[in-house]
Amino acid sequence: MDVVTFGETMVLFTPESTGMMRYAHTYSRKFGGSETNFAIGLARLGHSVGWISRVGNDELGKAMLSFVRGEGVDTSCVRLDPEAPTGIYFKEIRKANDVKVYYYRKGSAASRMTPTDLNETYISKARYLFVSGITPALSETCCDTVFEAIRMAKRNGLTVVFDPNLRKKLWPEVSARKTLLEIAAQSDIILPGVSEGTFLFGDTDPAKLGQHFLELGAKIVVLKLGEQGAHYFTPEENRHVPGFRVEQMVDPVGAGDGFAAGFISGLLDGLSLQEAVKRANAVGAIVTMVNGDVEGLPERSDLKRFVEAPDEEVIR
């Protein structure tokens, strides 16, 4: 297996109409969650990936499992919880590039994850462990699960990849900062956004933020800069990689997960850091052009066409 990840995925309801959700009468049902967005992104690019979680033993949970399996992600370590529901959330698209998300996840099955949900033998078969900063915010037991997964990964020689994925509404800022820094200090690759770096260190200068993360012990830091692309840092070098122009941004949710999938895909394919970040930028840009968390994630043929677009499509 190439990659294993774990965390909560929820049922997503999106109004069929744009504007304020109070006037919506019909909704489409989809699924979304940082870790499965990432996992599906990798699977579409031809990589093997597994997802560990809990979902409710309800119709929505079963539908979710069927969907994620159908996208090529291994779900053999996902547990059905008979005592808690599958989490849900709503995405309100008021107009293009004006998206609001409302979560109803308190007490969900995934928030009840514990270290006993982890299978070390299963994890040991992977090359990378992907950790999101959302999971430790869900509950104390979820936080314990994150650190136990990292310990398992370290014991078995996996590369730990961390996307801070800061969600301030989920926990107090003091706790968030402390925990995210602790996870970052145990990670090999860190994929923060500038706002997350500023939250953790107080700096806004990308060069300083990259250095701060390296000083925690990371081997690679890739700082996401939105439409301007990304800047990667290692102890030996750092370089800005331009982003891709998007004609119309429809839905930015999930772009960071696509970015992470593109980057790890590049590493799995043996690309240079510069080329891996370029792939990450491309996948992130493609995702923003489609409504939905995973609907825009490209297959290799889609990615190839996009990356080979004329040079003027690149933001310098």
Rank of each mutant, 00 (worst) to 15 (best):
L138H: 07
L129K: 05
T288E: 08
S34E: 06
E295M: 11
S76G: 12
M64I: 02
I93Y: 03
K106Q: 11
E237T: 14
I315G: 03
D163N: 03
Q186A: 05
M21G: 07
H25V: 02
I150K: 06
L42W: 06
I134R: 01
I189E: 02
G56Q: 02
L80I: 05
D74F: 07
V283M: 06
N156T: 10
C142L: 04
P136R: 00
I190S: 00
K91L: 08
Y128M: 03
A285M: 13
E120T: 15
L303D: 11
Y232F: 10
T86H: 05
P298H: 11
V194P: 09
F244V: 08
H212W: 04
L166N: 01
K219M: 06
R94H: 09
N57T: 06
E312S: 15
E92K: 07
G292C: 05
A261S: 09
G256D: 03
F199A: 09
V307E: 15
F90P: 01
P310N: 06
L170M: 13
F306A: 13
G254V: 09
T145Y: 00
T26H: 05
P310A: 10
F199P: 02
Q274L: 15
E308P: 08
A185K: 00
A276R: 04
E71I: 08
A96D: 12
G226S: 15
R155M: 07
P235S: 14
C77K: 02
G270H: 15
F147Q: 05
E59V: 09
P192K: 02
R177Q: 14
V11L: 07
Y27R: 12
K154D: 10
M1E: 12
A276G: 10
P252E: 14
E275N: 14
T121C: 13
A96L: 12
S301I: 15
L166Q: 01
K154E: 07
E173T: 15
L45E: 11
K169M: 14
P136N: 01
G197W: 01
R245Y: 15
K178Q: 10
F130L: 08
A96E: 12
L129Y: 04
L273N: 10
Q211L: 09
F162Q: 00
F201D: 01
E83T: 14
G243P: 04
L225N: 12
D203M: 04
K62C: 03
V221S: 02
L45A: 13
V161T: 02
G270N: 12
R239Q: 15
I190H: 00
R29I: 13
F67W: 10
E83C: 14
P192M: 06
E120K: 15
V241Y: 04
V222K: 00
L216H: 01
G270E: 13
N291H: 08
L118H: 00
D58Y: 03
P82S: 07
L80W: 03
F213A: 01
G284V: 06
E71S: 13
L12T: 01
Y104H: 05
